[in-house]
C-alpha cells in the first residue's frame, strides 16, 4: 500500500464493547435501519427469521475475518469488488450448506439467502471496520453485528408468527382467530416500525441515561 496510514489515537478496543455495539447501539435493523428487506420478507415465521439471522451471523463473521486477514493485500482502489467477491464466496458456502442440511427451510427462503450478498450491512462492516482492524477485533465486530441482526429478526418473527398464526416455530399455541395482517407484508412493516420505536424508546430512556452517569 502506498497511501500513508493515518494513525488515530488508538484506544484499546474491548471485545465485549464490540459485541454490545453490534447488538445495541448499532443494531442493523433497529438503529441503522438497513437490510430491512429480509427483515420484512422472511420474518413471517420464527424458524425462518431465526435461520436467516444465523446465516447472516455466519456470513458477517467470516467476511470480517477474511477481509481483515487480507486487508494488506487488497488495493484500496479495487477494494469494493474484492469485498463483494469475498461476500459472495461466503454466501455460496451458506447457501449450499442450507440446501444440503435444511431442505424445508431452504425451499421457503433460498432466494433470500442468496440475497445476503447485497446486504448493505455486511459490505458496510467490511469497509468501515474489518478493512482497518486486526483479525480478532474484526471477528468480534462481525459476531456483534450478526448477533444484533439475529436478535432483531428473532424478535420480529416471534411477534409476527405469534400474532399472525397463533403459533411459534410451527407449534400451535393460541387457538383464537389470529391477526392475519401480521404475516402479510403490511404486518411486517408494522412490526418493524413498532419494535424500532420501542427499542429506541428503551435506549433513550435507560441506556443513554445510564452511560451519562459514568
Amino acid at each position: 500500500m502506498s497511501e500513508e496510514v493515518i494513525k488515530l489515537p488508538q484506544e484499546k478496543i474491548r471485545y465485549r464493547d464490540l459485541i454490545i455495539n453490534g447488538i445495541v447501539s448499532e443494531n442493523t435493523i433497529f438503529k441503522l435501519a438497513i437490510s430491512l428487506c429480509p427483515a420484512i420478507a422472511v420474518t413471517n415465521s420464527l424458524r425462518n427469521g431465526f435461520l436467516m439471522g444465523i446465516a447472516v451471523l455466519f456470513v458477517q463473521t467470516m467476511v470480517n475475518i477474511t477481509v481483515a486477514a487480507f486487508r494488506r493485500f487488497i488495493h484500496p482502489r479495487i477494494r469494493l469488488p474484492i469485498f463483494m467477491l469475498i461476500i459472495s464466496g461466503w454466501v455460496s458456502v451458506t447457501d449450499m450448506t442450507m440446501a444440503a442440511f435444511a431442505r424445508e427451510a431452504y425451499k421457503q427462503m433460498g432466494l433470500y439467502i442468496q440475497l445476503i450478498v447485497a446486504f448493505a450491512s455486511i459490505l458496510a462492516r467490511a469497509e468501515m471496520f474489518a478493512s482497518k482492524n486486526k483479525i480478532a477485533p474484526s471477528m468480534f465486530d462481525g459476531i456483534g453485528m450478526g448477533l444484533g441482526f439475529l436478535f432483531a429478526l428473532t424478535v420480529i418473527s416471534f411477534f409476527r408468527e405469534l400474532l399472525g398464526r397463533g403459533s411459534l416455530w410451527g407449534l400451535q399455541i393460541v387457538n383464537t382467530k389470529p391477526l392475519l395482517i401480521m404475516i402479510l407484508p403490511a404486518g411486517g412493516f408494522l412490526a418493524v416500525g413498532i419494535l424500532m420505536a420501542f427499542f429506541n424508546w428503551i435506549d433513550a430512556r435507560y441506556l443513554k441515561r445510564a452511560s451519562s452517569h459514568h
Binding site: K177, L180, I181, M182, L184, A186, G187
Partner: peptide
C-alpha cells in the same frame, strides 16, 4: 384497512 386485511 387493518381490519379488512386481518379478517377478510
Amino acid at each position: 384497512a387493518f381490519l379488512l386485511l386481518t379478517w377478510p
